[in-house]
Design a protein around this nucleic acid. Structure first.
Lengths: 199, 199
DNA sequence: GTGGAAGAATGACCGTGCTCAGTACTGATC
DNA sequence: GATCAGTACTGAGCACGGTCATTCTTCCAC
């Protein structure tokens, strides 16, 4: 009976287990074939639960994608923050944060774009959506931190970081850009960020 | 037989008439109840055509919304361009273009947001979508024209205009902002544009 | 143990956007 | 007019995401 500090009954344990099975199933199927080519029925089958049960754990298919992709995004953000630490040039430092996020988002282009769509148009009341919004805020805060190294007022830094966010979204999300390789997208973002980051 | 320069047979005429009926029906229903609360069946009924026929004129429901909203957007753009002509301050001039677009987009919030979603995530191969993209490009060109009044390089102006576009999208589209009144959205955009338009 | 309240799981079912095999219409050709 | 190829129209039907009345499970009080 190791670490039974929280009274965890069979009920809670089963729920947790089911959630893990769902995440594993969804994660795998989405990565393999893309979110649009997978039905919720398939995910339920693979997770060995009823079709309706799925929606007790994620209110919509979109929420399911958020659930899966949030952790990837979180990891990318950590990498970006670390990479930015050693870089003094503001533009390069900002791009050090941006790059891993773009790479992560483009790992499976369709899923990445749908993820963005869910963040922008989904229901912010849902927990997985809130988590995603939290990550975008953290990303902006990381950029703010970089910008504040130079003399700059805090409100301006916050506004600039928000603008960088917007640039990223509009570089990654549109269907027109969906065929562009990661490097092109990163360069496109860099070109725009440079214009708004005067020395 | 007035102006029969083009050989317009019954066939072409009927198609045109049907398209007009579809546009009228969709336009009215969308405006009344919002795009999500209207079924394609209802639109077809109101236009007095078969359910399947609808999709010969617009490949998806989203395309139908583009079809309807494009003309409104086009009008807003014209108003914005005119308003900007008499204004010398760059920030004010840019905002003169932005404001009517935001107002138009927010006339029925849900429809406006769905319109943006379609522009960003829809199929650029579809004709109505292409028209919408054309309008966004025209908007950016109008902003470029304003920016080039002051000494500024053309590439920079283009980049800045594109950034203003991005700011607008990210101000209007997200669910979180859907409750904000027009004036708040405009001010939010203005605050950001000011930061990137140094004298 | 037993009873029963609270909660979780289920899958048949529904509404929706969209498709497609079949039908009807148009207009050119003789 | 008759024939016919090309095109437009149709609505029954499909696939899918999501719901909900019902069933099953857990766990507490006694």
């Amino acid at each position: 009976m190791p670490l039974a500090s929280k009274p965890v009954g069979r009920r809670e344990r089963n729920k947790q287990l089911k959630l893990e099975r769902i995440m594993a199933a969804a994660s795998e199927l989405f990565a393999e074939r893309g979110v649009d080519e997978v039905t919720t029925q398939e995910i339920a089958d693979k997770a060995d639960i009823g079709a309706g049960t799925l929606f007790l754990y994620a209110k919509t298919k979109g929420e399911l994608l958020l659930l899966v992709q949030n952790s990837l995004y979180a990891e990318a953000l950590v990498r970006g923050k670390q990479a930015a630490e050693g870089i003094t040039d503001p533009l390069d430092a900002v791009m050090a944060i941006v790059r891993p996020v773009v790479e992560c988002n483009r790992k499976q282009v369709d899923n990445g774009r749908t993820y963005l769509r869910e963040i922008v148009f989904g229901d912010p009341a849902e927990p997985h959506h809130r988590e995603a919004l939290g990550l975008t805020i953290q990303t902006e805060e990381a950029i703010v931190a970089v910008l504040l190294r130079d003399e700059r007022t805090a409100p301006d830094a916050a506004a600039l970081a928000h603008i960088v966010s917007a640039i990223m979204v509009v570089a990654m999300a549109p269907t027109i850009n969906s065929a562009k390789p990661v490097e092109d997208v990163v360069q496109e973002i860099r070109a725009q960020v440079r214009v708004i980051l005067p020395v």
